[in-house]
Amino acid sequence: MSSVDHAGKRVQIGNNRGRVNGWTSHARVFGICVAVDGVTRSGAADKARATG
């Protein structure tokens, strides 16, 4: 996910080569990568919903 539009309830999706693939609704997001091999992804916490 490249960007979040809270007002429009949508997210911008992209691929692993840095290209943007378009926009989709919050309802179609099933997960967000927050870490790779134990290394936290920059900005991921701001895009993920709090758990608990």
Rank of each mutant, 00 (worst) to 15 (best):
M1W: 01
M1H: 02
M1E: 02
S2G: 08
S2V: 10
S2M: 14
S3W: 11
V4W: 03
V4I: 12
V4E: 01
V4P: 00
V4H: 01
D5E: 05
D5S: 04
D5L: 03
H6P: 01
A7P: 00
A7W: 04
A7L: 12
A7I: 06
G8H: 06
G8K: 13
K9W: 01
V11M: 03
V11W: 00
V11N: 00
Q12A: 07
I13W: 06
I13P: 00
G14W: 08
G14Q: 06
G14D: 03
G14C: 08
N15I: 13
N15H: 04
N15R: 06
N15T: 07
N16W: 15
N16D: 09
N16F: 13
R17Q: 15
G18K: 12
R19I: 09
V20C: 05
V20R: 15
N21Q: 13
N21R: 12
N21P: 00
G22I: 08
G22S: 08
W23C: 09
W23N: 03
T24G: 02
T24P: 00
H26M: 14
H26N: 10
H26V: 04
H26F: 15
H26L: 12
A27D: 11
A27M: 09
A27V: 02
A27Q: 12
A27C: 05
R28E: 12
R28C: 05
R28G: 03
V29Y: 02
V29F: 01
F30L: 13
F30Y: 11
G31H: 07
G31N: 02
I32V: 12
C33T: 15
V34W: 11
V34S: 09
A35K: 13
A35V: 05
A35P: 13
V36G: 06
V36D: 08
V36C: 14
D37C: 07
D37F: 03
D37L: 10
V39M: 10
V39N: 11
V39G: 04
V39E: 14
T40W: 10
T40Y: 05
T40H: 08
R41C: 00
S42C: 05
S42H: 14
G43H: 04
G43C: 04
G43K: 07
A44Q: 06
A45H: 13
A45E: 15
A45G: 07
D46T: 10
D46S: 08
D46Q: 06
K47R: 10
A48C: 09
A48Q: 07
A48L: 11
A48T: 05
R49N: 10
R49K: 14
A50W: 07
A50Y: 11
T51H: 14
T51A: 11
T51Q: 11
T51M: 12
G52A: 08
G52F: 10
G52N: 14
